[in-house]
Design a protein around this nucleic acid. Structure first.
Lengths: 342, 342
DNA sequence: ATTAAAAATGCAAATGTTTTCATTTATTTA
DNA sequence: TAAATAAATGAAAACATTTGCATTTTTAAT
């Protein structure tokens, strides 16, 4: 049995005793200060300070049903993709006086149910997850408990659950459209597997629509699948470049684009003179690369902050109709990695 | 007042009733299954499943004093530096059936006290933080509550609190030593401010000792301060390269090194022929850069996992003597960014 | 100054567990 | 097979809060 060290810590009743008021009043002081009289307020404040009292936010949770904790489930933390989102979400939550419980499933949907269970056991007040493709089980568990769920990062007008994010179809469209404007016809697509990645899927569709192509009509070397991993992308793109160099490469996100840039550098191929590259995301660092990466900016911070606000503001429980859906505008940022060949 | 949606969720007593046993037994079933008889075990398991019961892990927290939650406080999430650590820590915690409460203070120590308070209010069982330099207040708050604290990432044999990490002095030494072995005498140091960054401070000292230099004897262009930011580092290093190019650059960590690489590329300076670069950290991506970055590997994953194990295993309460201190070995990984000029 | 209304506070019940101690049931030993 | 021991379970108290309702105090209205 473990040491039970923080026993004997002063509680609300000790504070009450010292302040000469009832515990109920102390409780009210911390939850709705404006409802207790100025004078008693001071008394309690002083007593709390004297005793070194910290609120116990998890004690009465059962009673009122809120723990002040919000969950965030992401595919991965260890990757530039969601870093900005996580950071912003966490710090915004702090403003709302909530804390964040975070977990990553490493693109393995099967892990998600375990994570959700663990969060539910901690009585989270709400949870944000990435995208729409999830196993049925965790979603049902959440729904059964009436825990508000919010899909962050992607937007679809007919999303099955409330969502906030960029319209990834449009994001893909923007990127491809730019390439087309610049006169590129022979472009290679490098994307991650889209089975359980709706963001990538939507982007891909946007891209395909610009070029009016179907995935099956794309040649072997014009559609390449690789995970969001710099090394893997680099290898795949080296191979592409060696076999059949396109005029431009459009990457599923900026980490793939980074791999593409490294691939070119390792082969001595000049960007953008020999080949143009466009990314998606505008991650930290993309602007400083050489050459500066042309990409479509996903406003991670805005998404994260609004997501936090929504979840803290007691997002209404999901119902098929009347679901909250917020679209955040993405933005093409042109730097130096795409050449105008008109 | 918010909807109190998850009211009426089945509790331990409903499960008990349905299984025809007492609540106490159900409680035992979940906490020490081996102590309840096989037959009743099945009964309870079935009842729980039927009712869709989830444990309520925060209910009795006050009573036994453990919440099953561990805190992690990092300077920043949105940066390659700690991404691997966070990920590994979180997933290891999951194995221990704990969850992680994480917060970032953005290198602003003043924020740390607010964060610690918030964690304390949630009755965390322990907390990991980065490095040794912290304000007195949060450390005292933690100590007063008897919450185990662990400094991860850096190791010092005389650390004020329990620690686990690489010996950053040695890390710096390794990097500089390699440069020296390769015949570099004229090297520039590019480091972040070391005031409240013990990791950087220790590395810097290791480097200085190799070259037997004092910081004051280093010329204006042989010691440069820049934050851990690719863009800022890139700018600073471009300036350096233009004014007075050294034979090699040793960077405070890999993000600075990345900035250095980009700086060279933007100037058309060849690595390693014109200038050698060595980083510290071996972050995700460092191996795939062009040229592959020579660096000193910090085993983030090992550190994180052991940290999690320690904290879950009920790290003994801090006492000045007999404090746990674990050193994780770093490792020089030589790739292509340093030239042998012997 | 009285009365009426509003604001502030207290009392006690309720929350969902865990835990101690007592009791019952099962197992081992002689 | 009886007694002794060990294992499994139950009853009820405890935990630190919040909250509905009742009561007291303050303020406003006449």
């Amino acid at each position: 049995m473990r040491a039970r060290s923080r026993k004997g810590a002063p509680g609300i009743v000790e504070v009450a005793k010292r302040a000469g008021v009832s515990p109920a009043t102390v409780s009210r002081f911390f939850n709705e200060p404006e409802i207790v009289k100025g004078k008693t307020r001071n008394l309690i404040e002083q007593a709390a300070k004297d005793l070194g009292y910290y609120r116990n936010r998890i004690a009465g949770t059962d009673q009122h049903g809120f723990s002040g904790t919000i969950g965030l489930i992401v595919p991965t933390i260890d990757n530039a993709i969601f870093a900005e989102l996580i950071q912003a979400f966490s710090s915004r939550l702090l403003h709302h006086d909530r804390t964040m419980l975070i977990a990553a499933h490493g693109y393995n949907p099967a892990l998600e149910v375990g994570i959700v269970k663990s969060l539910l056991e901690r009585r989270i007040d709400g949870v944000a997850l990435i995208g729409f493709e999830h196993e049925k089980a965790p979603l049902e568990m959440l729904a059964a408990r009436g825990v508000p769920v919010l899909a962050a990062w992607n937007y679809r007008k007919d999303s099955p659950i409330p969502c906030i994010g960029a319209d990834n179809y449009q994001v893909g469209y923007q990127a491809a459209d730019h390439l087309q404007q610049m006169g590129h016809q022979d472009v290679a697509l490098v994307f991650p597997p889209t089975q359980s990645n709706d963001r990538a899927e939507d982007r891909l569709n946007g891209v395909l629509d610009v070029f009016n192509k179907d995935i099956s009509t794309l040649g072997q070397n014009r559609f390449i699948e690789t995970r969001y991993d710099i090394g893997e992308a680099k290898q795949a793109i080296i191979k592409l470049l060696l076999e059949d160099r396109p005029s431009a490469i459009i990457c599923g996100n900026d980490v793939i684009a980074q791999g593409a840039v490294y691939a070119c550098q390792s082969l001595g191929i000049n960007i953008p003179d020999d080949v143009s590259i466009i990314g998606i995301g505008d991650f930290r660092g993309s602007s400083h690369m050489e050459p500066g990466l042309t990409t479509v900016r996903m406003p991670a911070q805005r998404i994260a902050e609004q997501a936090a606000d929504l979840l803290c503001g007691g997002l209404s429980v999901t119902s098929v109709k009347g679901t909250t859906r917020i679209k955040i505008q993405s933005e093409l940022v042109v730097r130096k990695s795409v050449k105008d060949i008109n």
